[in-house]
Amino acid sequence: MLEARLEQSSVLKKVVDAIKDLVQDCNFDCNDSGIQLQAMDNSHVALVAMHLKTEGFALYRCDRNIALGINLVSLQKVLRAAQNEDVMTLKAEDSPDALSLVFENSENDRISEYDLKLMDIDQEHLGIPETEYGATVKMPSAEFQRICRDLSLLSESVAIEATKEGIKFSCTGDIGKGAVTLRQNPNVEKPELGTTIELQEPVALTFSLKYLVNFCKASGLSNTVTISLSNEVPLLIEYEMEHGYVRFYLAPKIGD
């Protein structure tokens, strides 16, 4: 059986908020390393990979591998009943029909108990190769979100170029064009506010802004985001949590 306790409900609430517009039904794979999820969107253009490691749980017990087939819209309805600061306990049997969720406030005088029906989801897992990326950019997640939102008002796609000058996001649309260039600017006192760029080789790729704007819904998970790019391979965007991560992969646009 599974028994997993989070000190703060907000962790799972934020993860679900971050991915629910990308995937609808997915398996939460529970095993002795924690709770993992890998799912592609319907068009097979984007993939989300999530890992909540056991260290992030106040209590974690999972004797066997258990796949929890969850509809994320339904899960979000249940999670709405949890206050951010509530302690959350997830429980499931070995071959579960339902996931039990218990929310307890810090004063210990309210216990909310919910059951979420589970579904059988036959999900293909993709093998993601280890990649040495040509460019890796670490920057404030709020700034990345702003850039994606601003450019998405002008165009459907963005060209991302990483050179020794910096990283440039540019787009062209019906009403005009726009570009934002970020230069390396580490912040010694507050590293989460700085921008660092590791460049092995120049990279130039084009991506759909609709997906990038969608990924940015994970900004609440981390003050920083890491963007990894290589020519002709999917982009990796990672939001690292204290004990886990949410990663998004996006296939580039191809051709002229």
Partner: peptide, 14 residues
């Protein structure tokens, strides 16, 4: 105009 690629051409089924 560029076409949107898919992930299945980069990542293999496991």
């Amino acid at each position: 105009k560029r076409a949107q690629g898919t992930l299945t051409s980069y990542f293999g089924s496991r």
